[in-house]
């Protein structure tokens, strides 16, 4: 695979239904808290890019938007 870009993560809270699929795909970036809220790193490391992309693909409500950012 090619070099991983750095990405910025944003989650549309009006679409997110807290299924937690993102956490099982990218546990270092997404965390479904005991309070029922989703917390996430908006600027994860390049090493997390593949997992975050998979989380975005698998999100049941397609609530995760990714954009590339400069190093």
């Amino acid at each position: 695979m090619t070099d991983r870009p750095l990405i910025t993560v944003s989650v549309d809270k009006s679409h997110c239904q807290l299924y937690g699929i993102c956490q099982s795909e990218a546990p270092t970036v997404f965390d479904l808290g005991a309070d029922g809220r989703l917390r996430y790193q908006s600027r994860p490391a390049a090493a997390d890019t593949d997992q975050v992309r998979q989380a975005a693909r698998c999100c049941p409500t397609q609530a995760i938007t990714l954009s590339e950012r400069r190093r």
């Binding site: 299924y19 937690g20 099982s24 479904l32 808290g33 029922g36």
Partner: peptide, 9 residues
């Protein structure tokens, strides 16, 4: 129970 389900993954 999404959070509880994650524990069983």
């Amino acid at each position: 129970s999404p959070r509880a389900l994650l524990r069983h993954h």
